[in-house]
Design a protein around this nucleic acid. Structure first.
Lengths: 150, 150
DNA sequence: CTAATATCAGGACAACTGATATAT
DNA sequence: CATATATCAGTTTTCCTGATATTA
């Protein structure tokens, strides 16, 4: 605000970047302290969401989508598979690959908890944000997705 | 989209919460892989930003502001103090407290790097988002701040 | 005596790097 | 042989919990 701003809007963009950086950390911290939906970690939720929205995928594909190393994603999918949320079957066309998909039990569980779920984030969105504000946030999430995917 | 939606907007709010959860993780991951401004971690940037915006504070105050344990914040401030970015002086009115403030060197460094800084997030915001979109994101950050502070 | 501040010590978790086996 | 997939093993980072000394 008290900056001469040599380059046009330099100060504003930098402030935006800093604020976003700070907010991302704080949001992640609060999400962890509250525990996520159904005792799943954020990464686990991300994998299940993606498998539900885009269909079956391999570990490598999921890792690329989440900007994560295959080894890290492998650890996450191993836990999900052990918990019975996802299942793997070999790719008939490529012996290296294992195609992961949601189990029927998981799909049913997702739909069941989606209604019953009353976790921190959902409650805050409902109580702290008006409907227009929720729509504004939804529009901004599109922009954020573009940022993290670039 | 294919939901009956028993409670009004239940599906939309839940999707918003899930998307936000997934995005927070991915953004944090991308921020770390790129390295932040001047080799500072996200938490360190958060502390310096807050000290610059709101003035001196104690470890406990900073911890509350960032929704973090005092011990965790103490470790962060110890590193910043060792690096010469912040300095502590005892509170004359309360012997338990140590009041932390930015050093002159850090203040100068902040202003210097604010112009020269060309990190990943700033570049992406500049190149991927139009000016109206940047303003839309800025408005949404206000909403996000309300969420993480509640 | 109770509460708040700060710090020491150890632990859990998520993601990382390096190395390896296998299939294309 | 070069590349891609998946996995084993060990490391780093970040924040956590528990315990302690000090001051209000």
């Amino acid at each position: 605000m008290s900056e001469p701003a040599n380059t046009p809007a330099s100060g504003q963009e930098a402030a935006l970047a800093t604020d976003l950086r700070v907010l991302a950390g704080k949001l992640k911290r609060r999400l962890r302290e509250q525990g996520s939906a159904g005792d799943l970690t954020g990464s686990q939720v991300a994998v299940l969401s993606r498998l539900e929205r885009d269909g079956p995928a391999t570990v490598a594909e999921l890792a690329r989508a989440e900007a994560m190393r295959p080894q890290s994603m492998g650890a996450i999918t191993a836990v999900l598979e052990a918990a019975g949320h996802i299942q793997g079957r070999p790719d008939p066309a490529d012996g290296r690959r294992t195609i992961l998909s949601l189990t029927d039990a998981c799909r049913a569980w997702i739909h069941a908890t989606r209604a019953a779920r009353e976790d921190w984030l959902l409650r805050v969105i409902r109580t702290e944000l008006s409907l227009p504000e929720q729509e504004e946030l939804a529009r901004a999430l599109v922009l954020l997705r573009r940022i993290v995917d670039s």
